[in-house]
């Protein structure tokens, strides 16, 4: 094995990073949270018991039990005992402004900037390829994700993330799409905050229309610039908001 001038290869270090045993539990929780956010599971709805959940998701009963208890601790589900007992999706479970603000105050400006850079790099790569590969049906689907100005902030947040995923779908790159999904998960509920601001919604609508037009007209450079501006609009909003805390 070759060593780099300063010692062991940096890429080798990752091999020895401990593997997190909580990975699967977190994954199950993330799936359920996502099902709630996209409206597939709704407040008050009964969840399957741990055996059924384990079978459905292809995990062990132990993993399902741990996931349920983690969801209970974070207030996503509540459990009732007795004959009509079981686990239910909690009442005010949708991502709330309060929770998003708490998250915004936990992260550093450096983290937001760095995440935005990564997000822009991936989204721009998608947009460039999408502009080369788009057809009329692709563009029609993409435009269907541009939300109306008066949609609520939850629908806006969902529509924005779906819009970028559609750009990745038009690019037809599985790797870039997976990376985009991971980045959106890292951003968490933060993106809910700007969506409540009508000024941001107005600016964003124009950018979304520009991106769709560039992808339709097969203009890679314009499409890249557009998605970068889209992500910058979000991060600038978040950084401005966060600065008020200091």
């Amino acid at each position: 094995m070759l060593l780099s001038p300063k010692g062991a290869s940096r890429s080798l270090a990752a091999v020895f990073t401990p593997i997190k045993s909580r990975g699967l539990v977190d994954e199950v929780c993330a799936r359920i949270e996502q099902a709630v956010e996209t409206g597939l599971l709704t407040s008050g709805q009964r969840l399957p018991n741990e055996t059924e959940l384990a079978a459905a998701l292809g995990v062990s009963a132990v993993t399902a039990r741990e996931a349920l208890s983690q969801l209970r601790a974070s207030g996503i589900i509540r459990t009732a005992r007795g004959r009509s007992g079981g686990s239910f999706i909690a009442d005010n479970v949708l991502p709330s402004r309060e929770r998003a603000l708490a998250q915004l105050h936990e992260v550093s400006r450096l983290q937001i900037r760095d995440l935005a850079l990564h997000y822009q790099a991936i989204a721009a790569a998608c947009a460039g390829v999408a502009a080369r590969r788009s057809d009329a049906a692709d563009v029609a689907t993409l435009r269907s994700f541009i939300p109306a100005a008066d949609d609520d902030s939850l629908s806006w947040r969902l529509a924005l993330s779906e819009f970028l995923l559609e750009v990745a779908a038009i690019a037809r790159s599985a790797r870039l799409a997976r990376e985009l999904i991971r980045l959106q998960a890292d951003l968490g509920t933060l993106t809910l905050l700007p969506c409540a601001d009508s000024g941001y919604r107005g600016r964003t609508t124009l950018i979304l229309e520009d991106v769709a037009a560039a992808i339709e007209a097969h203009q890679p450079a314009a499409a890249e610039t557009g998605v970068k501006a889209l992500i910058a609009a979000t991060t600038d909003w978040l950084l401005t908001e966060q600065a008020k805390r200091y």
């Binding site: 099902a35 597939l40 599971l41 459905a56 998701l57």
Partner: peptide, 19 residues
């Protein structure tokens, strides 16, 4: 090959057809 179930959470949703 391990027959991993796909989208199985949707089966617990009453409006899964929308998906």
């Amino acid at each position: 090959p391990d027959l991993e179930p796909v989208d199985a959470l949707a089966n617990f949703s009453p409006n899964s057809i929308s998906r």
